[in-house]
Design a protein around this nucleic acid. Structure first.
Length: 852
RNA sequence: GCCGCUGUGGUGGAAUAGGCAGACACAAGGGACUUAAAAUCCCUCGGAGGUUAAACUCCGUACCGGUUCAAGUCCGGUCAGCGGCACCA
């Protein structure tokens, strides 16, 4: 009787059996002899929206990779968990009026169901959740390690405060002046005392170690940019205060060579000792400017195209190289949190200083001459010249090049104790506190007598109290501060009444080390943060990390930092968490926007009458654009619907087939049909072909080509062409009438099983009556001899244009090929009366005859 | 502005190491089967010319130029798009 293709029936069945058999549990004894392999997905934060087909693609990809590794005999750890703490979950809870402990639980259940429907190999026995006390106990423990190493400290400083989210933002969370969370621009600088992590201490290592990682250049470059190393010098100027005393002002510059061209100095408006410098007659003007720039939003202040503003302080400083008096100005183009908050201004050779000097009529002294400098009609510099050249007006530097002048001036400054060579980074310390409820409490106690005291390790975790009201406040205080029962405690050192820290950790805390936790999750008896025991230790570091590019700086930089700290603590024996990183592209789909109503129109609601899409409310023709899938743009495709209409395996295959895995790809609603048809064809092929004792050479050839192609292409992460290899195979074998065997079908099923696991398992165990899972098989090796061709088609070109083709023996040498080509009926006449200039032959490919 | 990446049919995309551009699909058109539709199967499918039909000829991988017997691929320049950084001294 013919076996009917009915995925609805078998897909669910196999998922349940796999789970019952604990097939993917790495502790299952059937895997005990195997080499370990750790393939990790970036874990999701459980939002209420569920997964769309764009999210699926990354999970399918890592699943194919994991299954492929299993078939190569590895014990594959492929875990999943929930990044549950943090703003997304809290915002979702507030919007729905449900406590986050409850709302996230429901969200997790929905996403877990969806992930299971993908047919993934997750080892659910190792599921973790960053908001569970047994997990965040260790997040707090790591924090205390940092605190004890002096890497966590409190500092009062101006910080980015998002008025919409009512929370402090780390520098990494401000993207182009906008809040990374809400996309809003209502961000102001507030003076707040904050917990900080000294990531800057690791800047150099975070930069250098990028070289040893197997990551895309793009992500590495983004991290390099973010760390932003600049090599330059610190130079000490001496300023005269308004009380007549001297004050040293240090500047950072990447161009110490141009020091003789410094004609003024600029301080950031927030510069600490400004009051002592400003002269009485300038005092009001300066105060007004400082106030104004303090009120300006980040976005406005950072606009590069805006005109320079500034105020003269009335004070002067002495240039250490030539004793010249230069005026001290303040301006908002100098930032307090980079370098020293003060610069020496060299208008002739810096564009910003040039613009400033032009506007306020300050001297411009050229110290580098070059034929590339541009002058106006009066012979003055028309713009700053920043290139190389020959030094002038610079005493002992005259005649030197930029490189030599830098060296010499630094030497000189150092001798006179007026400065030294130094390095600066754009990277700032990580603001590590949030004034929010839904996060890990920072485990310290404030005691009037003993200062800041860490909570003793044996008292961890400091649990987050269950409260009714967890909404954020406007005053920058954590909702926890209102819970006096919780806040009031005793100092662990002196026993006197003391108060708990009420800020919580940022969203990124839990995800900074979760990959270390997975291997030991089901070993709960071990009272350790992460696997140090021999058998667990071997899992780490992560072999393959798969996720979106959106975490290129934030999560991936933070994780690298924490890993290095834990390495320095001697807790782990590696200092990079993710050896190999794969960033999948995003899936895009047409989105419709009505410029009249000024909103996105969900695809399902678009009125498609006539040729063009119309707005359902105002009937305007809609603007269309290709956008990454998102609920807010209304262009998501729900995988649940496609699984119902087709099947999981078809959707898995189409996600891969749609395009290059690294690139963004476009969702085509009809595309899945191709994969659905492919499965149907393959099903009929396996179930209806008449089998013989032994497979024929004719039949084996396409099979071994398939094995070779799949193997190569999975290794190169070329999943789209791996799927087309299966299509090509089906097209070829449909022309072959006989010569197939049972063994043949078995090999075929193993080869395609990473892509269509349910399909392969059903035919393997049910149709071909195997006891054990197909995923305990070995991926077949291809046989070169079976693929080998005995002849090849040779293209014949005259002057590079194809004129004929012929079949030749695969081993024919160059001379034979040329000889055969010249005798061809189509070629012979073309050579008559011509002089042959050159003859080129490429075995197995072509012959090119150059004639005159 | 600086840095990085990408430009291939109507569409998504193929093309080891410079060697037959457009694999594999989607859409479209035509045909078969069918009372009909769906499903399935077969054919056509970059452009221009050419022929009853073929053969055949020319052009064609954003644009301009170069290297080479040979360029989607290498080099130089231009344009466009995407991403990152951006008053970082």
């Amino acid at each position: 009787m013919q076996k009917v293709f009915n995925p609805d029936e078998y897909e669910k069945k196999w998922r349940e059996i796999w789970e019952e058999e604990q097939l993917y549990n790495t502790d299952n004894p059937i895997h005990s002899e195997k080499e370990k392999y750790y393939c990790l997905d970036m874990f999701p934060y459980p939002s209420g929206k569920g997964l769309h087909v764009g999210h699926w693609s990354g999970y399918v990809l890592s699943d194919v990779w994991s299954r492929y590794k299993m078939l190569h005999g590895y014990n594959v750890l492929h875990p999943m968990g929930w990044d549950n703490f943090g703003l997304p979950a809290e915002t979702d809870a507030i919007n729905r009026g449900i406590h986050p402990t409850i709302s996230t639980k429901a969200n997790i259940e929905n996403i877990r169901r969806q992930l299971k429907e993908i047919g993934t190999v997750y080892d659910w026995s190792k599921e973790l959740n960053t908001s569970s006390p047994e997990y965040y106990k260790w997040t707090q423990w790591i924090f205390l390690k940092m605190f004890k190493r002096g890497l966590a400290y409190q500092k009062e400083q101006p910080v980015n405060w998002c008025n919409h989210c009512k929370v402090v933002l780390a520098n990494e969370e401000v993207e182009g002046g906008k809040c990374e969370r809400c996309g809003g621009t209502d961000i102001e600088k507030r003076m707040l005392k904050q917990w900080m992590l000294k990531i800057t201490e690791y800047a150099e290592r975070l930069l250098n170690d990028l070289d040893k990682l197997d990551w895309s250049e793009k992500v590495k470059e983004m991290q390099r940019n973010w760390i932003g190393k600049s090599i330059g010098a610190k130079v000490k100027f001496t300023a005269i205060q308004n009380d007549g005393n001297k004050q040293e002002i240090e500047v950072f510059t990447t161009r110490p060579d141009t020091l003789f061209g410094a004609t003024f100095m600029v301080l950031a408006p927030e510069y600490p000792l400004l009051d002592k410098l400003v002269t009485p007659e300038k005092s009001d003007e300066v105060k007004l400017y400082v106030k104004k720039s303090g009120l300006m939003s980040n976005v406005d202040r950072q606009k590069t195209d805006k005109e320079k503003t500034g105020v003269f302080t009335g004070a002067y400083a002495i240039n250490p190289v030539n004793g010249k008096k230069v005026p001290i100005w303040i301006s908002d183009y100098v930032l307090m949190d980079y370098g020293t908050g003060a610069i020496m201004a060299v208008p002739a050779h810096d564009e910003r200083d040039f613009a400033f000097a032009k506007k306020f009529n300050i001297d411009i002294i050229e110290v580098i001459k070059s034929e590339n400098s541009i002058y106006d009609n009066d012979g003055n510099l028309a713009q700053a010249y920043t290139g190389d050249g020959v030094f002038v007006n610079s005493e002992y530097l005259n005649g030197l090049s930029v490189e030599d002048a830098k060296k010499k001036v630094i030497e000189n400054l150092k001798e006179q104790n007026k400065g030294e060579g130094t390095v600066n980074y754009k990277l700032r310390d990580w603001i590590f506190a949030r004034q929010r409820y839904w996060g890990e409490p920072i485990p310290v106690i404030h005691c009037k007598h003993c200062g800041i005291v860490p909570v003793p390790e044996e008292q961890l975790p400091v649990t987050l109290p269950m409260v009714e009201s967890y909404k954020p406040t406007d005053d920058g205080k954590s909702p926890l501060s209102a819970i006096s029962d919780w806040v009031k405690t005793k100092c662990p050192v002196c026993g006197q009444p003391a108060e708990r820290e009420t800020d919580t950790m940022p969203q990124w805390a839990g995800s900074s080390w979760y990959f270390l936790r997975y291997p030991s999750v089901s070993h709960k008896g071990s009272d350790k943060a992460f696997a140090l025991e021999n058998d667990l230790k071997e899992w780490l570091p992560v072999d393959m990390y798969v996720g979106g590019i959106e975490h290129a700086v934030l999560h991936l930089l933070y994780s690298r930092f924490w890993t290095k700290v834990l390495y320095d603590e001697g807790l782990i024996d590696f200092d990079e968490p993710f050896q190999r990183l794969f960033n999948q592209g995003m899936i895009c789909r047409t989105a419709y926007r009505c410029h009249q109503c000024n909103k996105w129109v969900p695809t399902a609601e678009v009125d498609f009458h006539g040729e063009e899409p119309h707005c359902p409310t105002c009937s305007q023709v809609l603007d269309t654009s290709m956008e990454k899938m998102s609920k807010s743009k209304g262009n998501v495709v729900n995988p649940d619907d496609l699984v119902n209409e087709y099947c999981t395996d078809a959707l898995r295959m189409y996600e891969l087939f749609a395009g290059d895995a690294t690139a963004d790809s476009e969702w085509n609603d009809d595309g899945i049909k191709a994969c659905w048809n492919l499965l149907k064809k393959a099903w009929n092929f396996v179930t209806t072909t008449k089998l013989e004792e032994k497979a024929s050479a004719e039949a084996l050839k396409p099979l071994h080509i398939l094995i070779k192609n799949i193997d190569n292409r999975i290794n190169l992460f070329k999943f789209n062409t791996a799927i087309s290899a299966i299509m090509e195979f089906m097209n070829t074998v449909s022309q072959i009438k006989s010569g197939f065997s049972k063994e043949y079908m078995e090999t075929f099923l193993v080869t395609i099983s990473p892509f269509a696991p349910h399909f392969a398992e059903e035919l393997w165990r049910d149709f071909l009556s195997h006891e054990k899972s197909i995923f305990l098989e070995r991926f077949p090796a291809f046989d070169k001899k079976l693929i080998a061709e005995d002849s090849a088609e040779i293209a014949v070109q005259i002057n590079g244009k194809i004129k004929a083709r012929f079949m030749a023996d695969i081993n024919a040498d160059k001379n034979t090929l040329i000889k055969l080509a010249k005798e061809l009926a189509q070629i012979k006449p073309l050579l008559e009366g011509k002089t042959i200039v050159k003859e080129i032959a490429v075995p197995k490919k072509l012959v090119n005859i150059v004639v005159k």
